[in-house]
Design a binder for these strands. Sequence first.
DNA 1: GGCGTTTTGAGGTACGCAACTCATTTTGAG
DNA 2: CTCAAAATGAGTTGCGTACCTCAAAACGCC
Lengths: 352, 352
Amino acid sequence: MAQETSESLTASAALTLKDIAREAGVSLATVDRVLHNRPGVRPDTVRRVQEIIARNAFQPHVAAAELARGRARRFAFVMPTGSNPFMQQIEAYLGEMSAWLSARRLSVELINTDVFDPSVLAASLETLTGEYDGLAVVALDHPAVRAAINDLVDAGTKVVTLVSDVPSSRRHHYVGIDNIAAGRTAGALVGRLVGQKSGKIGIIAGSQGLRDHAERIFGFNQVMASEFSHLDILPLLEGRDEDDRSEQLISRLLGKHPDIIGLYNVGAGTQGVAKALTEAGREKQIVFIAHDLTTMTRRLLLQGTLDVAISQNPGHEARAAVRVLLSLARNEPILSEQEKIRIDILMRDNLP
Amino acid sequence: MAQETSESLTASAALTLKDIAREAGVSLATVDRVLHNRPGVRPDTVRRVQEIIARNAFQPHVAAAELARGRARRFAFVMPTGSNPFMQQIEAYLGEMSAWLSARRLSVELINTDVFDPSVLAASLETLTGEYDGLAVVALDHPAVRAAINDLVDAGTKVVTLVSDVPSSRRHHYVGIDNIAAGRTAGALVGRLVGQKSGKIGIIAGSQGLRDHAERIFGFNQVMASEFSHLDILPLLEGRDEDDRSEQLISRLLGKHPDIIGLYNVGAGTQGVAKALTEAGREKQIVFIAHDLTTMTRRLLLQGTLDVAISQNPGHEARAAVRVLLSLARNEPILSEQEKIRIDILMRDNLP
DNA sequence: GGCGTTTTGAGGTACGCAACTCATTTTGAG
DNA sequence: CTCAAAATGAGTTGCGTACCTCAAAACGCC
């Protein structure tokens, strides 16, 4: 006996614009005007039509709409120049989407710019006005950049900030993680993994000037102060995200403090830190936590030098940015739960 | 100076079937026949046309194809009856997709069945032959079920296993996590979080007969044996995923062993375990790790009773299953990186 | 060479919407 | 009431594909 119960999740009837027009007692042209808020419709007619659209939960057939549009949508990703591996992963995942994109007649371009110079970035953005239907921007939070983003938004371009937010701007969406929470997570993990021991904790970042680094440090210190106050946090080192410099700084730190039991690397340069650790022969005694999953951090996790990598999924960010831009361009709702980027805790056994 | 470099990720020309036909020197009808492997085309003509399609990286316009199809695609999710919160979350996220679904004229139905009785499940599946374009099935790995799945596949239905796999069948895809790795992750976390202490570790599951539970236990024991052999793993308890029973079992366990330092709940019933822990007043001294994120486990994480929740994202699974079924039905490639379900390690500070 | 079969061509229709034109009706101000 | 402006109706076209029919051509076989 196959005692099944069945339930449908979608409206049974597939209404069309024609049905809406008939029910509202207006012509197709008027429904079209209302749907795209074009001028030339009396306010109360607008209301009446909208009410009928809402009541019937009418959804324009996306395929039909897309086909009728004719021209393709153009999106662009404004990314930092240079060799940041995380950014390169995002670009790589965009590349993997190319079949998906072209089957939907979407064009995505990469624009590399000096993202860390606010005036250069702002100038770059200004030149893009009107060029694209949507932009995903790895942005610096700076007044000039904010103004450029707002200009783009005013010109009708959909703007999504990527990885690093500009909350004061009127960007439509942010695709990235909460870096304060990421720092808190790092702090909690360091505190938990060192166990009952007490001792010193080293912390190294690229630069305090980078918003994401600053936020992670803030979150980290917050947790350490409130929950692991018996641990002694050493002054912050700045490794500029470079392996060599990080290695030197950490080597010196390890030499000076034989009682270090934990290490947190806020930014890049993990390879350098790991090298300093292993050369000091202390990789097993010291809890080491860093960010991002690369071939390097993966290897370090597997061999046990690195205990935890806190990461955000670059593929997810790339795809989420595209999907959000597309939804914005189509005026459709965003599946917010889908587009939210999680803070991944990666250890040896749950490596993807 | 906005020194930009720009790169496009999509083919410049948007070819159509007509272009392919012209280049191949055949008619539209022939290209159509080749594209849908319909009979009546000489093998070498097929090859020639396919070669031109491949060379030009031609992608049929999905919107046009969808529109021309006419009839909607029908998918169904075969889910367990009962009140498993994880399954209910999957159903809830499917509900949240309804606007997305209806805008694409996709119909998704829920079919509730006694998934844990192989013959009932197999019989249910057999009745669905030909009814749907695609099925997502929470399946038990049993010969009868395997046969039913294979029959469906042979009849042209796209089949995706959900949460629990039937690897011996010819299902097109599995959407879910690697439960052995999940168990290993739990083991590594218990081992790491108890620190230098040694003592006993309790473990409770719903039933060893459930494949996912068995796999998690296997992974857990594997890690404990190889890396934390100083810890004493107590015999497995079976709480049948019920809160009351789990509470009783854990209460008794705690009474008998004052030196328990870690607890791993493999299945549901976390609320019961937590209650036993707090009533014994030992929630702070014992490392407690469980699965899945619910309102309950979220609360327990925030108040510190639960240290880590290992989870798979039900929303992601619901959406991935739909996307995979859709891609299969359209004969388009699957973005495997996107559809892969990760093992999430959730702690207080990285709760989504 | 004749026959039947297979292969191919040519063309049409429909899908639902965007975007447009142009004619007609309604409205409100004077 | 008059007239211009605003609102609306009615209609067309095209997007790229699926799916269909029917005729024509090519083919293989004896």
